[in-house]
């Protein structure tokens, strides 16, 4: 993004970086597409609407039913339809209707502008009715869209940074290598430790449901012998950050008399710690990727809900005139 742009103070906090759709600053992104063509248009549209409303509100109270109300409402409805068309454009890669970046740029800027136009259209009159529902849905669609812009600006870079420039597949590869090493190391040791390590590997948890992915907590568990009743009684406890395994290995290490045994335990400890870090990284990666996608799972249904509410809003207004 060029610093000379007059939109700099607004866009600077987004901190676009070199990854993902938040592209290189020097390159043209959907934010600075054609020197903020759609941004300028959106700002001009909003300013025009605000000034006209201010002038008109001195003469009569703002309302959706005045000539200005109808005009702003029509503009907002057309804008919403246009914004929804972006979903169609996105799916057709060979569309003749303008470039994808241009469409996205217009989608983002006009999506924010529609907030302003629709708010002026409703004249700040809210109630428990379909009209306010349509407004609230529009607000939510717009907010989720803004969230998407932020997420695309921020998370791809963050993901690369926290994965340490390797892909998720590499990390998963490393994880299974570590598991194999742990099994190999522990095969020379006694059975109790073998079952400890085996259970820790079996019950290593990654991702999960929507909530688990977005929350990003390590939900790994481990089956350990019941300390009071002894084997075969067992309990399942949390092994977040492999801490139960590491603690157990550390205890064994502290009580080890034989040098080769202690050395093996030392190796196992290192493997377990490495795995803990790796699982943490993967979990964070899954969380960030989930957040990167989740806004769209909100944005799309809300958008369709808005379209339905908008049609009913217009129908209701003209049915009961």
């Amino acid at each position: 993004m060029r610093r000379t742009s007059w939109l700099w103070p607004v866009l600077a906090p987004l901190r676009f970086d070199e990854s993902g759709i938040g592209p290189k600053l020097m390159h043209e992104s959907f934010i600075n597409y054609r020197n903020h063509r759609y941004g300028v248009f959106a700002v001009a549209l909003c300013l025009g609407a605000v000034v006209t409303s201010l002038i008109d509100s001195r003469r009569e109270p703002q309302n959706g039913g005045t000539w200005l109300g109808y005009t702003l409402g029509s503009i907002a409805a057309l804008l919403i339809c246009y914004l929804a068309l972006y979903g169609v454009r996105r799916r057709s890669f060979k569309s003749p209707a303008g470039s994808a970046a241009g469409w996205l740029s217009a989608h983002v800027y006009l999506g924010v502008a529609v907030l302003c136009i629709a708010t002026l259209h409703c004249g700040f009159q809210f109630g428990w009715n379909v009209h306010t529902s349509a407004f609230v849905l529009m607000l939510l669609v717009s907010i989720s869209g803004c969230w998407g812009v932020y997420v695309y600006a921020r998370y791809p870079g963050l993901m690369i940074r926290q994965r340490g420039n390797s892909s998720r597949e590499t990390l998963l590869e490393q994880l299974s290598t570590l598991d194999r090493r742990a099994r190999l190391l522990v095969s020379a040791l006694d059975e109790r430790l073998q079952s400890y390590v085996e259970e820790a590997i079996r019950r290593t948890h990654l991702g999960g449901g929507v909530w688990a992915q977005l929350r990003g907590r390590d939900r790994s568990t481990i089956l350990i012998p019941d300390a009071l009743r002894g084997p075969p009684f067992a309990r399942i406890v949390s092994n977040e950050g492999q801490h139960v395994l590491i603690q157990r290995l550390a205890q064994e290490h502290a009580g080890a008399h034989e040098a080769s045994f202690a050395a093996k335990l030392q190796d196992l400890l290192e493997v377990a710690s490495e795995k803990a870090v790796l699982v943490g990284k993967l979990q964070k990666d899954i969380q960030l990727q989930g957040l990167l996608q989740f806004w769209l799972y909100c944005h799309l249904p809300l958008c369709f809900g808005l379209l339905a509410a908008l049609v009913i809003h217009v129908l209701a207004v003209f049915l009961y005139r």
């Binding site: 998720r168 990654l206 958008c303």
Partner: peptide
């Protein structure tokens, strides 16, 4: 392997924007 046992992306969880869209509409 772990990727086969756990959903590592939202798509794998079966969450469907289409379903929620229809529900909301």
């Amino acid at each position: 392997e772990l990727p086969a046992l756990y959903a590592l992306s939202l798509r794998e969880t079966g969450i469907s924007a289409r379903f929620w869209s229809w529900l909301l509409v």
